[in-house]
Design a protein around this nucleic acid. Structure first.
Lengths: 249, 249
DNA sequence: CCAAGGAGTGCACTGAGTGCCATGCGTACC
DNA sequence: GGTACGCATGGCACTCAGTGCACTCCTTGG
């Protein structure tokens, strides 16, 4: 991606410093994002036209669509890069990793991107929360993340019976847990500890689907543990009991 | 309006009461759906304009938007009713039902709707598979189902710690399992047994989240189960053992 | 026979998104 | 130095989805 200086894929949100790369950041793209958000916040998304944005940014209307294929895209300026990062992360594995844990780590990547720009993320959250069109667009963005996770799991589960089913379900569960934590963090205006929130949420998914959550690392517990459960207890309760008995989670 | 030669495709089951305006069955709506699908299939979705559709259906352009708020909506003409059915189903419970099983049953409702019109469903599947705009729209439709399930589970899990998290994750898993089964059925051109496919997929979710899967019906298992595990065994192995001991999965 | 209301329609308008071409600017090559 | 090229940008006109409004029927009810 970072092949050519000033090449065709310059992306970053407006606040991110990219002076390190030495590639001049594209001022126009950032100017458009800044102008768009200023107007979206002060008069609403649907009340803002493309002409308003380009007028404020001081550029031609045609240039907007050169950088963003649609009006919605300007609200999610960095997801294309993030999706590429996530795909690269999943492809970079050796194949020895525990698959569920791996996709959970991939999800943490996305949360980190949000957490890098808390104010921007919170503003966008408020926007998407109340504009149906943006919510729909966000779904298609999230769907691409989910597909990336599911495709990875499908490869890892190729030998399993019902591998694709398990891959789809686990990917959906991971995304849902991530989104639950993300929204909780966004509602706190970025005040909560994002990573702790998402760790907790993903631990639930890992416990349900058999990933080993948070390896104990160091302490030497008793060798054997006995758990007694009523047979009709729901599995999640049994697992919860196991976890606490094992001193995990 | 039956006089129009274009409206010859009895694609829709429109005998049921209309969810939007309880005015019985509107022939115009069906004519529009029939005309739209005829054109979509023979020349593609994006190559078909609203004017083409209303011309073929022999009605005024303005009338299209009276029945369908957008061009995409004509592709999913019955989902509004189905969503209402599902919401009603979830609200109709006594509160004694096992929650995970209940949302699985709700999902089966949706599959049934698809299975009622196999040819229509398969045609729509082919369409949505290759038109990005329709895929995005379908996501927003599916999202509403998922929200309905999640809201139900949130109510049922109100007393639990992490109730909303569990609700969101389980709802997402149920929808993913349902969609996996649905797509598998659609790819078979509606030849497979739809209910068996979805039962199998949902059983996986129930086994993971503690719904009692496929109740043994008759046999009375032991009341209590004891599990012994080495303390440093990975959790997923413990869970696997628990599951097999409990006779789940 | 008339009043009211709803269903259908025509018309004009907004705004997103696209294709095409002109313009300006820097660089490479002669 | 000048010309040719590539590239980013801007301007213009066009298509098409979607909306607001006003008008015509047609039905229903008094």
């Amino acid at each position: 991606m970072r092949t050519l200086p000033g090449a065709t894929f310059p992306l970053m949100s407006s606040e991110k410093a990219d002076a390190g790369t030495g590639t001049g950041k594209p001022p126009m793209r950032d100017a458009l994002v800044a102008a768009a958000f200023q107007l979206f916040l002060e008069r609403g998304y649907e009340q803002t036209t493309i002409d308003d944005i380009v007028a404020l940014a001081g550029v031609g209307r045609r240039s907007f669509f050169r950088y963003f294929p649609s009006k919605e895209d300007v609200v999610f300026p960095d997801h294309e890069r993030c999706l590429a990062d996530m795909t690269a992360f999943l492809a970079a594995g050796t194949g020895d990793e525990e698959p569920v844990r791996r996709v959970c780590d991939a999800a943490r990547l996305v949360l980190r991107m949000y957490a890098e720009n808390p104010t921007f993320s919170v503003q966008r959250y408020r926007l998407t929360k109340q504009v149906p069109g943006l919510r729909a667009y966000e779904l298609s963005v999230v769907w691409r993340y989910e597909r990336a996770l599911a495709e990875y799991l499908r490869r890892r589960f190729a030998a399993r019976r019902d591998g694709t089913l398990q891959a789809d379900v686990i990917a959906a569960a991971v995304v849902a847990a991530h989104n639950n934590a993300l929204r909780s963090w966004l509602r706190s205006d970025g005040q909560d500890e994002a990573s702790a929130t998402v760790d907790h949420a993903l631990a639930y998914v890992q416990s349900a689907f058999g990933g080993t959550p948070v390896p104990p690392a160091g302490e030497q517990p008793e060798d054997v543990v006995v758990v007694v459960s009523r047979r009709d207890a729901p599995l999640w309760r049994v697992v919860q009991e196991i976890e606490s008995t094992l001193g995990r989670g």
